[in-house]
Amino acid sequence: MALTDASNTVNVELKVNGKAVNADVDPRLLLSDYLRHELRLTGTHVGCEQGVCGCCTVHIDGHPARSCLTLVGQLDGSEIRTVEDLAGADGQLHVVQEAFHNNHALQCGFCTPGFLMSIVGHIEHEENPDLSDEGIRDAISGNLCRCTGYQNIVSAVREAIEGSDR
């Protein structure tokens, strides 16, 4: 996204999926657009640009956050992780990805990267994650899905928590 107003740019140093990146961007550039259109990390999706749907969720400094509600200029020195970084270098799916596959927890797949990033963050930070149906639904309640009715996502989260070596 080649913004034309070069007179007013901001320079930030970032790490994206472990790689150092120096970005010289228009200050109004959203992280979601930067990831998708400049770094071509198109796994991060945009669904509402209001922070409600959760499709654009990435990790900023280890915590799930909405890339559509973050300007690149705010992120000097930050580490960003996107869905493309979840699978191992050998191509092995992350335990949460695997659980989604096993439980038919995705249909159109558009909301899926956001769910994955939210859930991975939840599992990484929550010391005693609640495995009840209600507890899991609470944990994923910041992400909208129009296809699955959530039931299989709940099953996938449970399987991922039980199966992850935490």
């Binding site: 989604f100 596959h101 995705l106």
Partner: peptide, 19 residues
């Protein structure tokens, strides 16, 4: 059976129009 379309979508490698 598990879906054939899942792996690419799970890896963020789907190709939606805007992608």
């Amino acid at each position: 059976i598990k879906r054939k379309e899942d792996p690419r979508l799970l890896r963020g490698e789907g190709s939606y129009v805007d992608d």
